[in-house]
């Protein structure tokens, strides 16, 4: 067992536990975006930042990937952490303003506006879809391509993948997904899972017997039970 201090309180956890798990165990909320139970930690969004260490050596780390260490001092809501988180949320809003998930997170942190150049990306490169497809659906149909500015998610050669079983899991998990599906060009769509649906809204347009991946919906905000 490893003993560490989170916000001053001692906690003992097993070797290999992440700071995020330890903090959640203690009931300290840490917002996450690219972390989902059942998928391996990836540390892409940096929203789960916490501060570790003391004095000048204190630094920010992503709690979803950082393993607990003996005697570590962790602060989950210091002013430095809150400030960094707010900047990250502003940056996320700047790239993907249409995401309901990001909007919700931002408003929970009291952010009213973002100060960066507004863009309308359809992906924040959180890698959730890639991990979902590989780890839960065992398909490995989509992945990261290129690097830097050009980094993107998709199938090899941008054509429909033979490995994709069109389960829709990647759409389901995506926090920015309403634009993810490029249904007007089915052969370039990320998996073609919804090529035969008729977005944007099934329910409003009366396609009751069809399946809708989004719950709650990111675009039309219909809450389904």
């Amino acid at each position: 067992m490893i003993t560490l201090h989170i916000n001053g309180l001692p906690v003992s956890v097993e070797q290999g536990t992440t700071l995020l798990e330890a903090a959640q165990f203690m009931g300290f909320p840490i917002p996450t975006l690219c972390h989902k139970e059942g998928l391996s930690p990836y540390g892409a969004c940096r929203l789960c930042l916490v501060e570790i260490g003391e004095g000048p050596r204190a630094r920010l780390v992503s709690s979803c990937t950082y393993p607990a260490e003996e005697g570590l001092q962790v602060r989950t809501a210091s002013s430095r952490v809150i400030q960094a988180r707010r900047i990250i949320l502003e940056l996320l809003l700047a790239s993907c303003p249409q995401s309901k998930t990001i909007q919700d997170l931002a408003s929970a942190h009291g952010i009213q506006q973002q100060r960066f150049k507004q863009e309308y990306e359809n992906c924040i490169l959180c890698g959730l879809c890639v991990r979902m497809c590989e780890e839960q659906m065992m398909a490995k149909a989509i992945g990261f391509r290129s690097r830097g500015e050009k980094r993107s998610i998709g199938t090899p050669f941008d054509i429909q993948s033979e490995d994709c079983r069109r389960c829709g899991a990647c759409l389901y998990i995506c926090p920015a997904c309403e634009l993810r599906c490029t249904y007007t060009e089915p052969e370039r769509a990320i998996c073609g899972g919804c090529a035969n649906l008729r977005p944007p809204c099934l329910e409003k347009e009366g396609f009751e017997d069809m399946m809708c991946y989004m719950d709650p919906c990111v675009a039309c905000e219909i809450k389904k039970d």
Partner: peptide, 25 residues
């Protein structure tokens, strides 16, 4: 060539997604 990557993927058991990722990286 696309065909070559597919053959490499089949013969080495590396998934095409990973190969494509490396080739574009």
């Amino acid at each position: 060539p696309e065909e070559a990557l597919r053959i490499v993927s089949q013969k080495t058991g590396t998934s095409l997604v990973d190969l494509y990722g490396v080739a574009t990286f």
